[in-house]
Nucleic acid binder design. Sequence first.
RNA 1: GGUGGGGUUCCCGAGUGGUCAAAGGGAACAGACUGUAAAUCUGUCGGCGACGCCUUCGGAGGUUCAAAUCCUCCCCCCACCA
Length: 429
Amino acid sequence: MPNVLETLKERGFVENTTHDQELQDYLNKDVVTCYIGFDPTASSLHIGSLVPIMSLAHIQRHGHRPIALVGGGTGMVGDPSGKTEARQLLTPEIIEANANGIKKQLSQFIQFKDDRAILLNNADWLNDLRYIPFLRDIGRHFSVNRMIKAESYKMRLDSEEGLNFIEFNYMLLQAYDFLNLFDTQDCHLQMGGSDQWGNIVAGIELIRRVHHKTAFGITFPLITTSSGEKMGKTAKGAIWLDPTRTTPYEYYQFWVNTDDKDVEKFLALFTFLPMEEIRKIGELQAAELNYAKSVLAYETTRLAHGDKQATEALRAAASVFGAKKRIQGILSSSTFPDDASSELSVDAVPSTMIESNKLNEGIPAFKLFTQVGLAKSGGAARRLIEQGGAYLNDVRVEQFDKIISLDDFISSEIILRAGKKRYHKISAK
RNA sequence: GGUGGGGUUCCCGAGUGGUCAAAGGGAACAGACUGUAAAUCUGUCGGCGACGCCUUCGGAGGUUCAAAUCCUCCCCCCACCA
């Protein structure tokens, strides 16, 4: 099996490393330990965290031992790295709850059984730190002159808002985390986003000063879509890993809608399909490339939500957008189901139940579209309909106040559509 | 604590008494073209069963026939000084 570092590099995970050659050697050992920190700022991770998650999964697949470190302690301080404004401080209760949610999601991607991976919370050692001893033991190793030059603080030091003292301490705490994991878990490698470079290096230096030993760091590139936007941030909000926030169907849809130019990159980063197959994507055109997008969507959904959910999402998408047949020779390692077209199902399409007596009376179209969330307000729904973007069972709705009633139902459901892509199923109860 | 500058609709940003639901850009949404892609063009873009009505310009009052615009007090941000 190739070195993990090679795998990570060829799949596009590596922006920068410290001590490249020594790191290579270090990773050639049988089992090494590596950690990444996750901020508990929300109860769910979103796809912006997928790069770190996948990299830990690769580490584990290569027989090493990943540590996911939930920042229950550092979350109390707030990392200023790369942020233009200070973050709202969260309460300990919220952080605790968020940490739990995050662990659950990480378990989808990383096997925590039998100590093959470890989940830790830095609140366990940070919350009870005593100020004076910390300053004397850790603080003395840090030069403020150097810290203020760090890229992670620069943006804030230059900004109008400035840098709060509490945030200024963040680097010391993260460095201390690394030292602590070095001591207790024999962890010599930390990975993180490119904005974490300063914090990671601070940890490496701290370890060197305290123990005169070498530790390593890898940073990931900031993944942007070809239109330059940060992964995971869409105008509608983040794409969450939590199925109650972003359903598997929506998750699948997000990936299917990947820009042509991003498909190859995303397959390398967000699936485990072999690179030999992925590299061929660049040559594909229209229909074939669209198939590759379906595979990307299926594989990513499978990783986040499991086979069953992924298949359901696929079938639902196939039923409204048309089925994709497996194409021989393209991404053939994928378990993309052959029979996707044979069992179409709209079950996974977003749906709403409405009382039958309400439907008996009939509901004006623009009200219904608003009610189920296909339009934000009555005005938006009217506009949608007036502009010809509203469909009832695939027939354009011509009048904003067209009455929709049980008569419109086909085998006890109707399908509403807003624009080309947003479907919503309604059934009577 | 002092002095000066500022807070406008999702974001940036114009507007200094009526012509302001508020220019312009971005984002977003819809239509056309397509491949559930991109680019492009067109339209929309506070709420409301809607050629009208209602609510917005940091907050609370006030002046006026009329206030985002003027006055008073308060809150918040920034710069310089202390």
